[in-house]
Design a protein around this nucleic acid. Structure first.
Lengths: 170, 170
DNA sequence: AGTAACTGTTACCGTACCGGACAATAACGA
DNA sequence: TCGTTATTGTCCGGTACGGTAACAGTTACT
């Protein structure tokens, strides 16, 4: 453990919460993608499928808004899922411009397996912690996530046009 | 808070530790990069500069090994830093193939400012937590990071040839 | 001496991302 | 009613990035 109350201290990166969060977050995303790969989907597909369970028949724009990404990205995501026969683009009943996105039966069969993979993955990551520590960690992370201002359940890694890096110096 | 002991439950992404870690990690990396941008460096540059404080005169290969990335990436990183006059490529005293990498005076002047930005950034991220909660969080994150098997202080987001995604997970 | 291994670097190529533009359709206003 | 504007989903093109292969110069091994 490190004393975070000494700002001038040259403590290593491994003792900084921001580094640890970034490091762990990247590792988690990477390993989760690897575990999901045999199912033929990526983490962002998984998140979209999870959301579609609750909002069947929405338009692509509605889905993009809900997940906090641009509609252009939704096109590609749905292309992937449609190609894997996990979603259907039906005609929207009232708006002939829009598509009504529906899960297929295959998707409803796949989702429990994906959810189980996610549970297993989480369990592996949290192996060093006991049940109460896990609950406390999740609660703390939720507070931190809430404080970021991002809507709950929206992953910023999915193409938000805001907050670019590489601004010109001076 | 959520009950993590019910695996079959369709709890939202925002209650999963793996999602929260990935989400927070990405957000942290993004905001840290934005804060560091006015200094003309990116987070990976910062990590390299921090490491160089301790290992002056090392070869590029040694640095690449220590940070867990490929030497080709080190070339680009050092190009950036050399262009900003933060490092010097001197002739290695004993190996005429290699370069001896040294921090410049400008770098030694910049590093405290960068460290202060990192401290401030960490403080902002952890705003919702009090001192003891912060210490406990860091301790927990360190345990989790250690459990990943990644060397301490090495960020997996920086081009490790190992651990590719898309590999079949038997 | 001769061969193999290593260092730093460059050239190359496929891929992903981001902006702008597009046709079709809807909504709005005079 | 008609014309203008907004929206939906899609596509095209430039650009940057990541990874592969190869390179000259140098060292190490035998």
């Amino acid at each position: 453990m490190f004393d975070a109350s000494a700002p001038g201290t040259d403590r290593p990166l491994a003792g900084r919460a921001n580094f640890l969060l970034s490091q762990l977050g990247f590792h988690v995303a990477q390993t989760f993608a690897a575990r999901l790969a045999p199912l033929g989907i990526a983490p962002n597909h998984f998140g979209l499928l999870m959301h579609l369970q609750r909002s069947d028949g929405n338009t692509q724009q509605q889905l993009a808004d809900a997940l906090g990404l641009h509609r252009k990205v939704m096109v590609g995501l749905l292309d992937d899922l449609e190609q894997r026969d996990l979603v259907e683009r039906r005609r929207h009943p009232s708006d002939r411009r829009a598509h009504a996105i529906h899960l297929t039966e295959a998707a409803r069969g796949l989702l429990p397996r994906a959810r189980q993979i996610a549970d297993q993955h989480e369990d592996d990551i949290l192996t060093p912690l006991d049940a109460s520590e896990r609950a406390r960690l999740v609660a703390v992370l939720q507070r931190l996530a809430e404080h970021t201002g991002n809507p709950a359940g929206v992953h910023p890694g999915l193409h938000q046009p805001a907050a670019r890096s590489r601004q010109p110096v001076d």
